[in-house]
């Protein structure tokens, strides 16, 4: 049901400014004294010293997961590159030579670049990965860097980043 919102009367209480000012100062000074004496209600944090824990779902910088033997889980299927709305992923596929222990998977990312400056952290790449090879569960955000190339993340760097718990592996049960 619609109802009409209240509009206060304008009698001497309001019109004389002072009572409402005093009431307002009651609110502000309550905060002031609560913050100065004892209980601190501050919501801001001293950022680099105090770090707000990111929730588990936080979409941070990317990482590439590894197989048990340390090889990249990624097979350069380009799904993430396809799904990325910011076009920040660039992959060049390579194939394992015959006789290589991983020759049965045939394909691996010879190059894997993520331009974290272009990235919009939407997480579509993680969703698009059919191998659980790319993840954003690192709990890291894109920090300021001194030069643009520093945020062009390359394959080996991405492989070396761990998740928030320090793990480099994945939940993908496929051993192959």
């Amino acid at each position: 049901m619609p109802y009409v919102v209240k509009r206060p009367e304008r009698d001497i209480w309001e019109q004389s400014y002072i009572p409402e000012t005093v009431r307002g100062m009651g609110v502000t000074l309550r905060h002031f004294f609560r913050n100065v004496i004892g209980r601190r209600d501050t919501v801001t944090i001293l950022y680099p010293e105090v770090q707000r824990p990111y929730p588990p779902r936080f979409r941070g910088l990317h990482r590439l997961t590894q197989r048990d033997d340390g090889s990249p889980r990624c097979t350069a299927c380009m799904c993430c590159q396809t799904a990325c709305p910011a076009e920040c992923i660039h992959i060049v596929a390579g194939s394992y030579p015959d006789g290589h222990p991983l020759a049965f998977v045939e394909k691996y990312p010879a190059e894997f670049w993520i331009d974290e400056l272009r990235c919009v952290f939407c997480g579509l790449c993680v969703e698009a990965c059919p191998c659980d090879a790319i993840r954003m569960d690192t709990g890291l955000h894109a920090r300021p860097v001194e030069a643009r190339p520093h945020l062009m993340y390359e394959r080996n760097l991405l492989l070396s980043i761990t998740d928030a718990k320090g793990d480099v592996l994945t939940a993908n049960p496929r051993k192959k």
Partner: peptide
């Protein structure tokens, strides 16, 4: 500092 205390902030530190 005072505005920070009033506004539940930390202020310049």
């Amino acid at each position: 500092r005072m505005s920070a205390m009033i506004q539940d902030r930390i202020g310049p530190v």
